[in-house]
Design a protein around this nucleic acid. Sequence first.
RNA 1: GUGAGUGUAGCUCAGUUGGCAGAGCACCGGGUUGUGGCCUCGGUGGUCGAGGGUUCAAGUCCCUUCACUCACCCCA
Length: 452
Amino acid sequence: MANRHDKEPGPGAAGLRRLRGFQDLRAEQARAAERVETVCRQVARLHNAAEIRIPALEPLELYRRTSGESSDVVEKQMFAFALREPDDDEQSGADNTIAPAGQSPGHPELAAWAALRPEGTPGVVRAYVEAGLDRSDPEQRLYYLGPMFRRERPQKGRFRQFTQFGVEIFGRPDPLCDAELIEMVDEIARPLGVALRFEVNSLGCPVCRPAFRAALLEYGRARLESLCADCRRRLERNPLRLLDCKTDVEVASQAPQTLDFLCVECRAHFVALGKLLGAVGLNFEVNPRLVRGLDYYCRTAFEAASPALGAQNAVAAGGRYDGLVEALGGAAVAGSGFALGVERMALLLPAEPAGDGPEVALIALGERAVEQAVAMARGLRALGLGVETLAPTRSLKAMLRRADRSGARYAVIVGERELERDVVQLRDLRQSSQREVRTAELAAVLGGQGVA
RNA sequence: GUGAGUGUAGCUCAGUUGGCAGAGCACCGGGUUGUGGCCUCGGUGGUCGAGGGUUCAAGUCCCUUCACUCACCCCA
């Protein structure tokens, strides 16, 4: 186990290899990711969420405004580009320039800067406001599924491009909607055979958070000496981070807790949420040290994690972000949502036996049989049967071997001897039985086998 | 950005005190004039991550570098 490493990808014909932190998902990995995505879409449908497809590239300013200036996402994790239209700068051949890594563009026109989305929520909110839904029809349930990009150092479960499924509910300030979002994560994990641990917390709201923040700040300042280096650095800028410090569990566990500072409304919301989750039988723990990295969260925060994942163990996380829509120039509309890491969930899927191959492997034996074989393949596919065709450049033995390995149930052999008599050999690869079938009857025979 | 670990065939890995580059799996073919799997015999496939140094001789020792993996950080 200690010696098991993926090797660096070998250089291709042109010495090209994939970028660091990017991955090719093949075979089982691709199938696992697809299964996760399929279940995500099903659950979205069951909760009446509509898909929204938004750009992967947005104005950099969108993420600066929503993710918070101090968060790591904006600080150093984004792939940012300077956009230049061809006519803007005729003499230069370079139309797009990649911004230096991690460097904040000091460009006056921020619209000229774009970033690959590090998360889905800002884009969805932007689209929601841009379409005027905040005024015309505020209550919306939207889901998205697609790639996100973060310029982080890769490790297990963490990639520079990864896929997120996310649901955002607008115009619903009630705890019922928060509970439903958490349920959705559970409803995705269960049919996939994945056990997740749910943690829930309340971060308070603009009314009660200042007092909590002040208390935390005071607590931190009082024991500046005993704080770890990271926490000391973070204390003034984002004191909430103190709570999930892993190096110094002592300090973190003794610190003031949000739950002790909640205002009446926040407390009621949190209690109601707990009751609703209990009512549907969803097990969860209250984790008073659970915080969110992004500034716009308020009240409900939750996380679903698996110990099987290693250090990056969060599979899904979310919470309430009342005020975000307003911050992006929309009306004062409540919002709540979550995002789920498709690849992380896929890593947790129990191994699945390889899927079935095609129903038929069509073997053309000899050049003269190719045309006939092509026509037959087309006809069989029109009936909904999967067909793998094999070129007649190899021996029959080799073609049958390929047919066997493709997982096909039947091999249909069309040779020159068969052509003359207008028949084919229909071989059952599982039973090793073979019979001759009239070409005209092949479709009916295969169709009637119930092989689909 | 920081730290540690690992780089030998497509994959998983052996490779002794420095002495001709190996196995298993996979792939291709023979054992069948047109019949898969199992078996059997054979074959293709390597800048030993890269560069430099020591040495008669380096996969092996030294230096540098790159990549990957895991962890910190952060997060899905």
